[in-house]
Lab assay of single mutants.
Amino acid sequence: MGFKLLSKLLVYLTASIMAIASPLAFSVDSSGEYPTVSEIPVGEVRLYQIADGVWSHIATQSFDGAVYPSNGLIVRDGDELLLIDTAWGAKNTAALLAEIEKQIGLPVTRAVSTHFHDDRVGGVDVLRAAGVATYASPSTRRLAEVEGNEIPTHSLEGLSSSGDAVRFGPVELFYPGAAHSTDNLIVYVPSASVLYGGCAIYELSRTSAGNVADADLAEWPTSIERIQQHYPEAQFVIPGHGLPGGLDLLKHTTNVVKAHTNRSVVE
């Protein structure tokens, strides 16, 4: 069995187990497998329904001669939608809004960016022009300005110390501490036991640490421990890039980060 097929099978099995364990909360999309990078042309966006009122959005972007996937989250909030992270750029984010209108038909009224990198804030200006209120932590807003990236308009308070959590509509926002970046936030959907790890969490097929220019490698494993301790009931975990899975993604990420750190020390 090929690795790609095995990865998709694991996603399907995880979703099936969740649907059985929580039949009222989960209505997993039966329309197909989780979209992969090879299936999404740059400039297009796919939506994948995880649970009743919960979707991931998947886009792709060219970077350094390669094409990478990027995940975000959409959560229903009454007759409105909360968006977590842009679709990595203005063109993708405009396509995301169009796809949401086509498939869901509810307005996106608020959006949260989970850290300051372009795959999370690139497209904020498109959201703002569409009347979406954009939010991020003060740290993310400051770092985005320093980096020359787009800056969300509103500040999220109460997320300055490791372990801080605040309720934001249908989700809980959690600051686990520094990891992929010093400002990275985690998003949890309690009604569906869905954990969105953003770039602080890796997919299972990833074996290298990737972009760690703004990471705190020493603190990252401790931050992941905080996530595990705060959300032990999480059933569906979405990484910032690639295929979702279960809580095993947290341990896998820790292993990859520690291996990278150990290699760096040896070198």
Rank of each mutant, 00 (worst) to 15 (best):
M1C: 01
M1N: 04
L5T: 15
L6F: 09
S7G: 08
L9N: 15
L10S: 15
L10A: 12
L10I: 15
V11K: 08
V11W: 07
L13H: 14
T14I: 09
S16P: 12
M18E: 13
M18R: 09
A19P: 14
A19H: 06
S22W: 15
A25W: 14
A25G: 14
A25R: 14
A25S: 14
A25F: 12
V28H: 14
V28F: 06
S30E: 13
S31A: 13
S31T: 12
S31Q: 08
G32T: 09
E33S: 10
V37R: 10
I40C: 05
P41N: 12
P41K: 14
V42P: 15
G43F: 06
G43T: 05
R46N: 07
R46Y: 10
Y48E: 09
Q49E: 12
Q49A: 11
I50F: 08
H57N: 04
I58Y: 06
A66H: 15
V67L: 15
S70Y: 04
G72D: 05
G72K: 03
I74N: 05
R76I: 08
R76P: 04
G78L: 08
E80A: 10
L82N: 04
L82P: 05
L83D: 02
L83A: 04
T86N: 02
W88I: 00
W88G: 01
A90R: 10
T93F: 02
A94F: 13
L96E: 00
L96V: 04
L96K: 00
Q103E: 14
G105Q: 11
T109G: 11
S113T: 06
H115C: 00
D118H: 07
D118A: 08
V121C: 03
V121W: 01
G122V: 07
V126C: 03
V126M: 06
L127S: 00
A130Q: 14
S137A: 07
R142G: 10
V146C: 09
E147G: 11
I151Y: 05
T153N: 09
H154W: 13
L156R: 02
S160L: 11
S161G: 13
G163I: 04
D164R: 08
V166A: 08
G169D: 06
G169P: 06
P170E: 05
P170A: 09
F174T: 01
Y175G: 00
G177Y: 02
A178L: 05
A178I: 06
S181Q: 04
D183F: 02
N184C: 00
N184K: 03
I186N: 06
V187E: 05
V189F: 04
S191M: 10
S193Y: 14
V194R: 00
C199F: 03
C199K: 01
E203G: 07
L204H: 12
A209M: 07
N211H: 07
V212D: 12
V212F: 06
A213Q: 13
D214V: 06
A218W: 10
A218R: 12
P221T: 11
P221K: 08
P221C: 05
T222W: 11
I227M: 10
Q229F: 11
H230C: 03
Y231N: 08
A234H: 03
Q235V: 11
I238L: 07
I238D: 00
P239Y: 01
P239V: 01
P239A: 03
G240D: 05
G242I: 04
L243F: 11
P244A: 06
G246S: 12
L249G: 01
K251S: 12
K251F: 10
H252Y: 07
N255E: 14
V256Y: 02
V256D: 05
V257E: 03
K258R: 13
H260C: 09
N262W: 10
N262P: 11
R263E: 15
R263L: 14
V265Q: 13
V265E: 14
V265F: 10
E267I: 07
E267H: 12
